[in-house]
Design a protein around this nucleic acid. Sequence first.
DNA 1: TTATGATATATCTGTTAATGATATAGTATG
DNA 2: CATACTATATCATTAACAGATATATCATAA
Lengths: 113, 113
Amino acid sequence: MKQEKMDQLTDPAYYILLSVLEARHGYAVMQYIEDMTEGEFIVGPATLYTLVKKLQKAGLITLLDSPGDRRKTYEATQEGREMLQREIERRRRMAAHGAQAFQHLQGSEGNEK
Amino acid sequence: MKQEKMDQLTDPAYYILLSVLEARHGYAVMQYIEDMTEGEFIVGPATLYTLVKKLQKAGLITLLDSPGDRRKTYEATQEGREMLQREIERRRRMAAHGAQAFQHLQGSEGNEK
DNA sequence: TTATGATATATCTGTTAATGATATAGTATG
DNA sequence: CATACTATATCATTAACAGATATATCATAA
């Protein structure tokens, strides 16, 4: 029944998990992402609550108990933080692959003869 | 009828477009991606030929004519190269957002009082 | 010469992922 | 007491991905 294990993070999942490195509730996560990305990346409620549930099932975030508060506050687990470190590196590698391909291009263009 | 305009690139599309900065045919693209990413990222034929068609419709790649060759060779257009530059930057920003969030964490942990 | 494996392109289809729209209710303030 | 914002949640549609399969060519070694 449990849909355990996310082996890597999609962009929305990445930003949500990043947001709860410090404890935050769902609505605040949406605002935080919009702020941190200067409006470039927006996560709406459908995406947010769907993914929060999934991240929780995967053990990457945990629900903190906050009695007498209708808000649900989440925080990244140790496993979540490790996943994030890997995902940051993966995105760096992707960017590096791109830069590399362009470099290789400049190092060989118009070099006939 | 035309499904014009890709405003940003998914990871498979990004790697395919990168691969045809220098003219390459489809099968070679698959190999190139596996090589460049040291096996981390693999694009199979279903994904490849689907996306090649889409990238072409979006004007990001163009089919070169190579008479008497069953292979179809593609190359990124100017528009494609510009898209790639933006996509490299976007991935850098995503990685930077991640690093930033971790930094902010270290700059405030255990600082009650 | 033919069988084997690699090259090369292509589509069909099931599954997963993302998201707009909508719903509901609590809270603050003028 | 109405308006706007806060807050959580699901439904339903669309888009993306990718395994499986199909077909044909080419190189080469037995």
